[in-house]
Write a protein that binds this DNA or RNA. Structure first.
Lengths: 380, 380
DNA sequence: GGCATTTAGGCAACACTCCTTACTAGGATG
DNA sequence: CATCCTAGTAAGGAGTGTTGCCTAAATGCC
């Protein structure tokens, strides 16, 4: 049954949720202001504020209203209500933030890493970042959201290595590493998905409920957004397009990743794309050919996405994705089905996307403190 | 704000919903039975049943309990509470059903059509089927769910013709055609998506939340199920894979549909696949070659789906899809990423899938009769 | 300076919902 | 015929949210 059992306590917890969510948007407010904002009557709001203050979630800030009329008391969320951890794990380093329920960044830290620092070192740095930030917030970390530059197993949150794709961060399991510092759930997803969420909330895909975000950098990735949500698939590997068959040099069908091998655009003894070499090949005057080959290959991947997910637009991101927008758009326009192709806009999209989700989840955790439990009492 | 305003009327409507949904599962029940099933107290249930009876949604059936103890009265949904229309539009004819809130089929009718009956004739038959069924149910048709053997525009519900794909049913707009006979919303989706929903609810994909359903018949189609829902994409064209680039004869990259043109497996002067010819080519002893080409092409399409949506399994349906399961499975097993490939199981999947959704939507419409409106009263 | 105005908040009464705890009704069971 | 068992009812209570009126205190106008 999806409808909760009707109990008076349910109404009360709904009122409390309205009050809390209002104060997550407004920083501070008097009871009369909360009543006006929610449409709930003043006595009911007063009751709720008294309850929430007693349970420690709200505090009287000591500030008082000025201006005409009776002086009112301002209330706000308690300062020890907790924070959320946001972490970005990339081959070049680990960056972390602690954000509060308003979305404000309370603390920030980052540690650079050598390209081949190794998994043990990365794990150590990740734990250090979490520990540092946990020590800087009152109320502790109540949830964590992690962006990792590798595919993520949806169930365990661990990073996974796909054959013929670069393993940038390496064998790493963020969930157990963060558990000592975070008192709550840890959500791990790959950086491409976070970038797509960032574009959806304020970037080129604002308000778009169905689109794809193609990440073209050292690795190849794609985020699939359907009905307003990033879809991760059964194991979390949705959008891992390295093995997608596309058109390579000479019109031959081949996995996307092999197109780069064929063009000699891979880093030495690696499956990672050599971004510098690729840019040179693409910008060189006499180099019309590799550029056209790449545009065709990208176009093939886009056609697969168009066929399967019917996006409203396609966003190209990553180190060299935006450079190819005109070529891909022109090439795609000649196909039977096509969509607008635009370049990604959000800078630092991985942290930006993860931050918004972290705030959401922190807010949900706070609200859940007062929510009536959904477990129905056994029938008699 | 996603949380409704807390009002006492909300609790009451939740109680009413519990009562109604219980009687949608049980056909008839006494108030004490409803109380036991929902966990809500007997007096509250009695109140709710009185309200719902007065408003005409429930009726005292006149039946009485037998056995020890005081005699109880059985209640059930009113017979004039309405029904849902389920229609399947295919090139070979139009089939329709009227189903009640229990999922029982109240009436059924079908009209065969010639292959080239034309759109006007199809529209006429559709309206006739709806009119016939509307006249056979008390309470009228409160919603309709339509399965059509062509791509469907998600916003308008109209059938659309994609280039280089067969247009089996033709230019048809079911929504305005059904409007005179249905007092409520009309949902149109293509037959492949309904088949996938049928496999999800009792077929090969029972309980699977992420999978793809490949329809291989006269046309080529695919249903994408992510997080337990069929994803339709921006315009409703998700899964229209005719133009997906895959590997054709000689390892050349080409749109899926052109593979069949290259093999001479299209109907004369048409973009539709010649299923009879295909089966002959595939079962013929000396015909190992076209069979391998087809398996490879299907495998390419599957790889695209695996890359983009990460399914748990792949289901092959359609006229000749199940025949190719062993070949495709073997071919796919050699790829870097693969999933189990199984044959579709549900017979008559289009009506089966649509029926379940129709019942769901009918139930929701009935419950909405009593629900408190979500529109908050303006703040004062 | 005096006074009406304005606004936050408190209080009391009310309406409503659900629950608990009896209690009643009336056929089965022995 | 006494007892048991069960559906339903009645009464009372606890706990919501709302309305309407009141107070307190600062502002602004005359």
């Amino acid at each position: 049954m999806d409808t909760a059992k009707p109990r008076l306590a349910l109404l009360r917890s709904m009122t409390d949720e309205h009050v809390l969510r209002t104060l997550m948007r407004r920083e501070r407010a008097t009871r009369a202001e909360i009543a006006a904002a929610t449409g709930i009557s003043k006595p009911t709001i007063s009751d709720s504020v008294r309850r929430l203050t007693e349970s420690g979630l709200l505090v009287d800030t000591g500030e008082r209203t000025t201006g005409r009329g009776r002086i009112g008391s301002y209330y706000s969320l308690a300062t020890d209500i907790g924070a959320a951890l946001v972490v970005e794990i990339a081959p070049h380093g680990v960056a972390g933030e602690a954000v509060d329920a308003f979305g404000a960044v309370l603390a920030r830290t980052s540690t650079p890493l050598d390209r081949d620092a190794g998994e043990a070192r990365t794990a150590q740095v990740l734990a250090e970042v979490a520990g540092t930030l946990a020590g800087q917030v009152t109320g502790g970390l109540r949830t964590a959201v992690v962006s990792a530059a590798d595919p993520v197993d949806r169930r365990t949150g661990a990073l996974v290595h796909l054959p013929d794709a670069p393993f940038l961060v390496g064998e790493l399991a963020p969930v157990p590493l963060l558990a000592p510092h975070v008192d709550g759930p840890v959500l791990v997803d790959n950086d491409v998905n976070w970038a797509a969420r960032a574009e959806m909330a304020g970037g080129r895909a604002t308000g778009v409920r169905d689109f794809v975000y193609l990440h073209l950098g050292e690795g190849l990735g794609c985020a699939v957004v359907s009905d307003g949500e990033v879809r991760r698939g059964h194991g979390g590997l949705a959008g891992e397009i390295a093995h997608l068959y596309t058109a390579g040099p000479g019109g031959r069908a081949m996995p996307f990743t092999e197109v780069f091998a064929g063009l000699g655009l891979r880093r030495p003894s690696s499956t990672a794309i050599d971004v510098a070499a690729l840019r040179t090949a693409v910008t060189g005057a006499a180099a019309a050919s590799p550029r056209a080959v790449l545009a065709t290959a990208v176009c093939g991947a886009l056609l697969a996405a168009i066929s399967l997910v019917d996006p409203e637009i396609a966003v190209l991101g990553g180190d060299w994705g935006p450079d190819l927008v005109p070529d891909v758009a022109a090439r795609l326009a000649g196909e039977a089905r096509h969509v607008p192709v635009v370049a990604a806009r959000v800078t630092d999209p991985h942290l930006t996307g993860a931050r918004a989700t972290a705030v959401e989840r922190l807010r949900a955790a706070i609200v859940a403190t007062t929510a009536v439990s959904a477990t129905a009492t056994p029938a008699r």
